[in-house]
Amino acid sequence: MKNIYQTKLAKIIDIKKEAEDIKLFTFKFVNKKDQTRLDFTPGQYFILSVLGFGEAPFAYSSSPEEKDYFQVCIQEKGTLTSGLFKLKKGDKVGIRGPYGNGWPKEIFSKRNLLLVGGGLGLFPLRPLIRSVVLAPQKFKKVQIFYGSRCPELLLFKKEYKLWQRYTDLCLTCDRRSRGWKGRVGVITTLFDKVKLVEDPVVLVCGPPIMYKFVIQKLKELKFKDKDVYLSLERRMYCGVGTCQHCVVGGKYVCKDGPVFSYKEIKEMPQAI
């Protein structure tokens, strides 16, 4: 019988600082077969373990097209991340997964996409953006709304030029600040300022407070519930719907999500 808690060893091959307490880790499985067999859908997650610090779930930040490594962008926030942030290039971690359901990949090639990311909510959207950059033929039009509190907290800045070649990237910062010449206002203001891509499926990830306002805006704009997807964050241990920590409205975020359509979310009290 397979042990679902057995992890596979992965080596840290690169660490990049993205912000004060945010780092982009690049991993490669120690066993070659584990690396070549790695396949996931953007929006799916894996469980990362640092011995002595336990385990925690993280969304992939690289795309499935990147075959030689995988990446995850992490903010130092809890027990596990405090252990991870002490590690250096060459150190090893344990990985199990992929788990859950990612963004609805069956519509990627059929519909225009509007990605709405707030703050760290860009992490699970980045694999999709990387896919668009690496395999643009698989997608129709892609528009990105990305909002941050201040310019310093905008993530993946160095990649924007590349993203802009393949997507309509629209940035906004909540507050006016020195040196920021871009748009100012919370993310929902972009819907009034920017011409929306035609009839898109909307993929949203951000803090819970953002969901309320984005959903409100999308309703005003008469978006269909089934055309809106959100990714939820919850505490998780097992990853397979047993430990109960991630339950919301009768569903398990770990195996039924983390991505849900708004149609499903509406039936799940206290989901957002």
């Binding site: 808690y5 373990s49 385990e55 097992c238 430990c243």
Partner: peptide, 19 residues
Amino acid sequence: CFCFNIDDEPAFEKNQGSR
């Protein structure tokens, strides 16, 4: 009732412990 948590408990020896 079967809910559970999973945590690491380090031992006294460096790099050793239990999940």
